[in-house]
Nucleic acid binder design. Sequence first.
DNA 1: ACTCTGACTCAAGACGCA
DNA 2: TTGAGTCAGAGT
DNA 3: TGCGTCC
Length: 372
Amino acid sequence: MGIARLADVIKEEAAEAVSSFPLRQYRDRVIALDASIAIYQFRTATPKLFNRNGENISHLQGLFYRTLHLLENGIKPVFVFDGQPPDLKQPLLARRAEAAGARRDAAESRRAENLPRPLKQDCETLLSYLGVPYVQAPAEAEATCAALVKSGKVWCTATEDMDALPFGSLRLIRHLNSKNNCEVEEFSLPDILQKLGMTQEQFVDLCILLGCDYCGKIWQLGPKKALKLLQQHGTIEQVLQNIDPQKHPLPANWDLEGARRLFLQPEVADPGRITLEWRDPDPEGLVRFLAHEKHMNEARVCRRLQRWQEAQPKPEEAQPKHQAPREGRKQRKLGEFFPASKHARPPEVRGVRARPPGTRGARGMAQGIILC
DNA sequence: ACTCTGACTCAAGACGCA
DNA sequence: TTGAGTCAGAGT
DNA sequence: TGCGTCC
């Protein structure tokens, strides 16, 4: 859900903190994405994409296309998976579950916080074959994204909801997945704080008043009033002393301190222990996994990979610092690998399941440090 | 006039052919 | 199903 | 560009 109306408040009250750039502006930038939200979007946007085994593979198709799109534009994505949702979020999740009711299939209805394990493993496998790193967050993905930005390992967080700002992400971009002709919208946290005349702590208070996932909001206190009162009085405690409690009753079980703590001292993966590396996608592995194992249309997979390779800069135009070949790794040309005809038989799949190249087993994942 | 709430509607991802 | 956008109606 | 299809 994010922070209700926060984008509107910022655009109205701190318009200078919002810029628009074409996607190419982010070439060579490292961008953290909330994997769970992306996957959830793919599942809801294409809910009826089943393979011949009856498995829903919309998340794989979506992740495959979107990641290649980012790579083609020179962006270095890092996907961050949600961990355990904080206790304060439980009431919200319970309400969602109740609203969903019994009629929905549990596996389908689960929102991003609780991605079923096989679904998540599929995505990790796909990302490994795409040569894209991913990180397991201990709690909220957006909090770990923000920590990565603060550490300097990542340039910005790409997300459609605004949680990353109160978590301290210095930059947040939206509409990254839009078509090429659309511009990416960038929010600068330092500029927002400066224009609003607030500290990060006060900004967190503002987000809590606007309505966040961790506690209810105060009756009859909308964005305009909340901003004005906070700018006037500095903290929520002071605001409460200056409004009529009869007209603005507090919600039940309102844990202000808990919500503040979650934003200001969230549980995050330690950026110092995370090494991010990108490799070229592995076409052979991708065809084996997507087409042979997951039964995605092979011609589509190959066509898309072919397009990706055609978009790659020629060796002489390539920038050596980003294209340093890894030792002992030789990429086959697509022409050597892809069948000449659409109808040609794919190479035989051997064994149960190929281990994605470069993954280091479950131990690293459990620690939230995934090296690709 | 301004602000807030609640009810309502609608699109949601990416490709490729026409 | 969810969230964003829009609108009408009510409160200040 | 719009719309049907992806499996």
